[in-house]
Design a protein around this nucleic acid. Sequence first.
DNA 1: TACGGTACTTACAAATTTGTAACTAATGGC
DNA 2: GCCATTAGTTACAAATTTGTAAGTACCGTA
Lengths: 124, 124
Amino acid sequence: MAARKQNSTYTRNEAFITECDLTYAVNKIGGRWKILILNKLENEKQRFSDLKKEFPLITERMLTLQLRALEQDGLVKRTVYAEVPPRVEYELTEMGMAFGPIFQQLSEWGGKHRSFTKSVSESV
Amino acid sequence: MAARKQNSTYTRNEAFITECDLTYAVNKIGGRWKILILNKLENEKQRFSDLKKEFPLITERMLTLQLRALEQDGLVKRTVYAEVPPRVEYELTEMGMAFGPIFQQLSEWGGKHRSFTKSVSESV
DNA sequence: TACGGTACTTACAAATTTGTAACTAATGGC
DNA sequence: GCCATTAGTTACAAATTTGTAAGTACCGTA
């Protein structure tokens, strides 16, 4: 998001890497807080302030950045209500919701890996 | 991998974020070239030089870093043969193989998202 | 004895991502 | 007019990740 140097090896490599659908997909959810946000939105739509409360460690700046990126990529829909003070709601799009079952499996993998790692380190 | 400042907000936030199994899992495959490597290893084990050939843009340094991280996390098994010149083979562990079906679905998501995005931009 | 081939290391620089802190806009209610 | 509230924005600094370039070790062969 934050203005890329179009001709760095870094950026060119990313372009190459995301030619693969798999890497492309993972890239879309690769921001630090994106998955937590998507995961939270899976249950129900949330206001900006709701998300802030849910993740006390995220700064407003980061929350905005991540939400904007998710919106840009069509994973999240942003609705602004013409009220004062402002009210803005975020909810998943269809593409965003499509991550549901995948997240479920990733979560299971994570749990398994965690307990596996723990049992290995204990047996030392 | 590259020596973390234990008390930065950055690192503390990561610790917080990866308390969630889902984020934890995605973090394990989050390095730039990790997914491509895992994906390649899914078919069969590969030598260091095979991977280098497969991904011409990766540098030896990066390839080593990513493989070491994957090994550390128990997703990849490294076997060194006592030969000269050296021969080192990399293959998936069980935890590494467990990503198979997940990668399949992510890849499908990526393809869908790509064609969806294209059709939207065309209709403008 | 110099050379080639494989699998690395190392010191350093560039690029990007994330965090900090302070500031903005709009308006209904006091 | 002034304040509180929500949802931001902005300039800047810190941290981390990635890339560059050059060097290491091993030993069989020429």
